[in-house]
Design a protein around this nucleic acid. Sequence first.
DNA 1: TCACACGTTTCG
DNA 2: CGAAACGTGTGA
Length: 184
Amino acid sequence: MQPHRTGGEGKQHARHGEHASSQGQEMHHHHGNNNFQSGYAAANHMTKQGHAHQDMLSLSNRSSSGNGGGGGVNGVNMSNFPAGMLGLPPGVITNSSPCPSTSPGMTSGGQGSGASKRKRKRCGVCAPCRRLINCGVCSACRNRKTGHQICKFRKCDELKKKAGSILLEVGDTHTHTHTDTHTH
DNA sequence: TCACACGTTTCG
DNA sequence: CGAAACGTGTGA
């Protein structure tokens, strides 16, 4: 009898990579290479810098405790908006490719059709994402050694739904949003 | 490099 | 259609 899998895998690493340092470096080396195609960048509205991983976002308390409102939950992030930037039109923001991690397949931007390529990270806002501990009983937990997957309960909702299709709800108000509001 | 997690494919 | 396994990419 195993002593219960503490918290699951016993995550030794506390993944906390918050870069509080606000480096206002706007200059982008590289000429304007708009690579807005990168799925990652697309989600980086909030991050003009590109170094803020939206991964674990503010898992803090979504109880809307006052909701930190100003997106300040993390504090320090958007506060440093250079005035100049604010003046820029939405579309011109040109994120200035945030230090591309140099992903392997970025060349052709495979996302074109079919395989999405490029792994996405959890949004960090869904209930599953907020889950810190694994149930330890679901198949994923039990077969993680072979399954290599995260607990079913922790599987990001976004990743589950848009596992291959992006953009599919917003836009059509009355379409079959299919967003099934969960029968709840 | 290892570990973890997502994406894809195949089997049930 | 769903679950499991495999393979791969990303992060530390």
